[in-house]
């Protein structure tokens, strides 16, 4: 297979047709304990509250929680997909960790992400994320600035 035969990235969104309030992406992710262990290894964050129920309970938590940074990391992916996969167009990304994502040993946790245009300007757009798990918002003030050609 020739690399040149396959476009590396999908098309960018056309900014001229975007309006504030448009929903541009949504996705659902299943987090199980395996995913938490994988993130621990990839990130180097080995805090045991992310893989041991006994340790989590000993510090007053109901059970193992997802790394906030895992939730933040996956929540931007629907936006990257909308950008045709060009992750480098994300120039600023912020969240507030408002509620922990409790990851049941058997059932895991479902994280739902919705991305809406929050603002448009000459340089691109601000995309606002709604991120929920177990019926609760888990990330607040989740904003992604993306660079888009005029």
């Amino acid at each position: 297979m020739s690399a040149a035969a396959r476009p590396a990235l999908g098309p960018l969104p056309d900014r001229s047709v975007l309006s504030v309030g448009d929903e541009v992406a949504e996705a659902t992710f299943l987090l199980d304990r395996d995913k938490l262990v994988r993130y621990a290894g990839a990130s180097g964050d080995f805090n045991p509250i992310h893989y041991r129920d006994d340790v989590a309970r000993s510090v007053g938590l109901p059970g193992v929680l997802a790394h906030g940074m895992l939730t933040m990391g996956l929540a931007v992916q629907p936006v990257v997909d909308w950008l045709g996969g060009d992750a480098a167009r994300v120039v600023d990304y912020q969240v507030r960790f408002t509620r922990p994502v409790l990851v049941d040993a058997e059932l895991g946790a479902v994280v739902q992400v919705t991305a809406v245009v929050g603002a448009l300007d000459d340089d691109g757009a601000r995309i606002d994320l709604t991120v929920r798990s177990g019926g609760e918002t888990v990330l607040g003030k989740a904003q992604v600035r993306v660079a888009l050609p005029a």
């Binding site: 590396a8 993130y39 990391g73 996956l74 992916q77 996969g85 480098a88």
Partner: peptide, 29 residues
């Protein structure tokens, strides 16, 4: 892989270069 980032520019050097980057691009976080 750990943050569900599936874009080829994170995984495939040729894809990253075809997109104009020097090498694999790290996810935003």
């Amino acid at each position: 892989r750990a943050v569900f980032a599936t874009s080829p520019i994170h995984h495939d050097v040729e894809a990253a270069r075809a997109a104009g980057y020097a090498d694999l691009v790290a996810p935003p976080t």
